[in-house]
Amino acid sequence: MRPEKYVFLFIAVFFAIVTPIYWFMSGEIAGTFVLGFSGLLGLMIGGYLALTARNFDPRPEDRGDAEVVEGAGALGFFAPKSIWPFWAAVTVAIIFLGPALSQPWISLVGFGIGIWSASGWILEFYRGDYKH
């Protein structure tokens, strides 16, 4: 987590330098507070990363002697084919068609189709050819 720590600490230092310059050049309160709190946010995240980096073993990308294969993780499972994203897109189109045509009942039909399409997409691998 060393590179991330340095990125956020750089952000904190940058905003610590820019905030007073902005205040003297513009005299604006709101922008000064936004820049100051952006610096505090960078300091908070950088400090958190600096403290937690001590408790973890270095990641492969943080070690100089690491091999590329050490950083490879599991890719996961991806559906070979599915019709459910199409039905989800149709559902969203029908839901937004209701306000576009000033007909709220069309959106209600869309929500009904949405329950069907969402449950089909969620339960896709509990039935049929790709049942686990």
Rank of each mutant, 00 (worst) to 15 (best):
M1T: 08
R2L: 10
P3E: 05
P3I: 10
P3Y: 07
E4A: 12
K5L: 12
Y6L: 09
Y6C: 00
V7S: 01
F8K: 00
F8S: 00
F8Y: 11
A12V: 03
A12D: 03
V13P: 00
V13F: 10
V13E: 03
F14W: 08
F15Q: 02
A16N: 02
A16P: 01
A16Y: 07
I17W: 09
P20W: 00
I21E: 02
W23P: 00
F24T: 07
M25P: 01
M25N: 10
M25D: 10
S26V: 12
S26L: 10
G27Q: 12
A30Q: 07
T32E: 04
F33Y: 13
L35P: 01
S38K: 02
S38Y: 04
G39T: 13
L40D: 03
M44Q: 05
G46S: 08
G47P: 10
Y48C: 06
Y48S: 04
L49V: 08
A50S: 12
L51C: 04
T52F: 05
A53C: 09
R54K: 15
F56K: 15
P60F: 03
P60A: 09
P60S: 09
E61K: 07
E61L: 06
G64P: 06
D65R: 03
A66Y: 02
A66V: 05
E67S: 12
V68S: 05
E70L: 00
G71M: 08
G71K: 04
G71N: 14
A72P: 00
A72I: 15
G73R: 13
A74P: 00
L75M: 11
L75F: 11
G76S: 09
G76K: 03
G76L: 04
F77C: 00
F77S: 12
A79I: 02
P80I: 03
K81F: 11
S82I: 01
I83R: 11
W84A: 10
P85M: 06
F86A: 12
F86H: 06
F86S: 06
W87F: 15
A88F: 06
A89L: 15
V90E: 03
T91C: 13
V92A: 15
A93E: 06
A93I: 15
A93V: 15
I94S: 05
I95C: 11
F96N: 10
F96D: 04
S102E: 13
S102N: 13
S102C: 00
S102Q: 12
Q103R: 11
P104W: 11
P104N: 06
W105L: 14
I106P: 08
I106M: 13
S107R: 07
L108H: 13
G110C: 09
G110Q: 06
F111H: 08
G112S: 10
G112L: 14
G114Y: 05
G114E: 06
I115W: 11
W116Q: 09
S117K: 09
A118G: 14
A118C: 14
A118E: 03
A118P: 02
S119I: 11
W121K: 05
F125G: 12
Y126G: 07
G128E: 14
K131F: 15
K131R: 15
